[in-house]
Design a protein around this nucleic acid. Sequence first.
DNA 1: TTTACTGTTCACCA
DNA 2: GTGGTGAACAGTAA
Length: 276
Amino acid sequence: MPELPEVETVKRILTPQLIGRRIQKLTIHKPEIIATPDAESFAECLTNAVITGLRRRGKFLLIDFENHYTVTLHLRMTGQLFAAPKNYPCKKHTHLIFHLDDGNELRFVDVRRFGKFWLLRTEEPDILTGIQKLGLEPFDAELTGAYLEEKFSKRKIAVKQALLEQSVIAGIGNIYADEILYQSHIHPAIKTADLKQEQWESLAWAVPLVMKTAVRNNAITAEDYLKEEGRAYRTSEFLRVYGRKGIACSACGASIEKITISGRGSYYCPRCQSLK
DNA sequence: TTTACTGTTCACCA
DNA sequence: GTGGTGAACAGTAA
């Protein structure tokens, strides 16, 4: 369930459940989800380790341990990470279980198995996961219209594709890119070289607004999260354009359209989001 | 049976 | 070097 708002929600739910917990044992059903090192070393280094904190960077989640190891993970398309009582029924596609010292289990479920785990020394520079290539967080004060213009104005890609570049802004995915463009009144297919200064400013304003709103709207209780009630975010009532092809725009009443940009489905309002 | 799908990376091509 | 396309990962759902 991954775009920044969902990863942030996972972090907020898991933090109080995991801090101070000791890993008694690991069960790795699918070793291929461990990118580095091998599954055996992964389990060995984390057995008896105590969790000290959780962090998020872009769509990555980081779990810090007292023994100076950090587990970095990416949920990709369908990964889920949640804490459950050990007698709670184990779902299909559960690939990794951390057995905690309070009787709960931290479980990783991933239907499509695109998600990945890396184990790294906390203090060592991370050159493996791709985190070091990430750009600004959406809430960073340095994210201005001028920053975006400088990054993109000489390039000729669709603005929709530009928003998805993790090396410029970290954490935006296909759903929220569409929502950001809708709030900015910018057509997703406009080329970055054709955007005006005020449109870059508009994007720099909409990015943190949409992400902050999404984090708030995605907030659910740990109980609901365990029951997967937070999973329908793709069709969330809070989305203004994504997944709403043929439905009336809530601002102007025009019918939301869907086109393909760089192979990704892109939803927009043909009246609110002009091509100029 | 066919197609699309929230993410990322890579190969190949113009 | 830029950028477009498609494939790969693997499974489900419409």
